[in-house]
Design a protein around this nucleic acid. Structure first.
Lengths: 214, 214
DNA sequence: TGTAAATAACTGACCAGTCAGTTATTATCT
DNA sequence: AGATAATAACTGACTGGTCAGTTATTTACA
């Protein structure tokens, strides 16, 4: 009997992650409220009792999923933007294309969608996401804009409010597509959206008009 | 006994609306899943059976709320933008300030928030909103941008994608504030946000740079 | 053989939806 | 006008199914 197929795994190192994987797929498919712990257990190849061996409640499963998914996000994007010096268009462009990639793949978009779907019913999720992602990313972005202004790259816009203008259009595009099924005739067109958005944004915030499109 | 205090009302004209009012307040307070039909009935000053006299199911209550709230939205904004000729900045500015007003008042923001909260669990709600609001508003906005380009007011941006750049920042601002409790130190600052956004947007999309700020 | 891991059968709270019965209002008749 | 019949509006106890969480039992490994 191989390591992976044996039914009982003493010490159970891999079990929690497997259960979270199963929970994620069931939550995504049916939503938290309609998801049954029995389904999650079956999907994980385990009985319901085993699920409760590792997680104290159904809600803890949801929190576990978000917890596990959320940490890498900020750690990926934040560091290289934090101490960036120079034209802010470079890291902003990079950020938008990164977002573009993440939100285009079916598997990576699942977690943001799940969070969006349940966040209003579970304040704990909202706070976790805020603490682990937004509180890290928002100040970094704000600082980036502020530095861009100080160094003469950008016009004197309000840095804190301008980050809404940076990411807002992406959010709107995804929301229209994912929630309401509204997208351009030729598909999601994420790349085209980012291009169009960057074109408008940079012309809108750059100090030197003729440099707006490098 | 006055008309309003009598218990039985022939033809029962006002009851459905009262039940929907009650349902709205309970759904907003606890979310659809956690809301009990008994609570809604009590809030409406009526028994549970009466609720089912007027609505076939709990879900029908949610649909009724959205149905009732949704029709006026598009009818308000769309008509005057549909056949507007001239500088598109005028109706866009008007639209953004209108949104600003709607989303700032506690009572009017309740319904969009409820829709956002439940839309992913109830495809029927998503479709209703799309049919009654988005399918009307989106083409009107797209047409407005397209006409602005044709008449030389705007640069040749992609009209369909540019509307994401028009409303996206507002959505991002509201989402940060309402979901994650992230807002500028001095409060929501909705007016300031719109100002900052318009400043960037118009400079970004206008054909004539020095006319960007009229 | 001892024990940790896993199971499957169980429990009890919960609540959407029903329906037989009650009460208020209106219609009809004298 | 008063009395009675008819009906519309409303009630709340009840049911049936669901499902999160628990526990008594079994299994596999050292």
């Amino acid at each position: 009997m191989t390591e992976t197929t044996k039914k009982f795994r003493r010490r159970a190192e891999a079990r929690p992650d497997e259960v979270l994987d199963a929970a994620l797929s069931v939550f995504v498919a049916k939503g938290f409220a309609a998801a049954k712990v029995d389904d999650i257990a079956r999907q994980a190849g385990v009985s319901k009792g085993t699920v409760y061996l590792y997680f104290p409640s159904k809600e803890a499963l949801l929190e576990g999923i978000v917890q596990r998914a959320v940490s890498p996000i900020a750690d990926r994007a934040a560091p290289d933007m934090a101490q960036f010096e120079g034209d802010p268009r470079v890291p902003i462009t990079r950020l938008l294309h990164m977002l573009c990639g993440v939100l285009t793949q079916a598997d990576t978009i699942a977690i943001p969608k799940l969070i969006l779907r349940e966040v209003m019913n579970f304040p704990a999720i909202a706070e976790m996401y805020r603490r682990n992602v937004l509180d890290k990313v928002v100040p970094v972005l704000t600082g980036l804009i502020a530095r861009g202004i100080a160094q003469g790259y950008l016009r004197p816009v309000d840095p804190e409010l301008t980050i809404r203008s940076v990411v807002g259009p992406i959010i709107a595009h995804i929301a229209l597509s994912e929630i309401f099924d509204i997208r351009p005739i030729d598909g999601l067109a994420m790349e085209r959206l980012v291009e169009n958005h960057i074109d408008i944004l940079f012309r809108g915030i750059c100090a030197d008009p003729q440099e707006a499109r490098p």
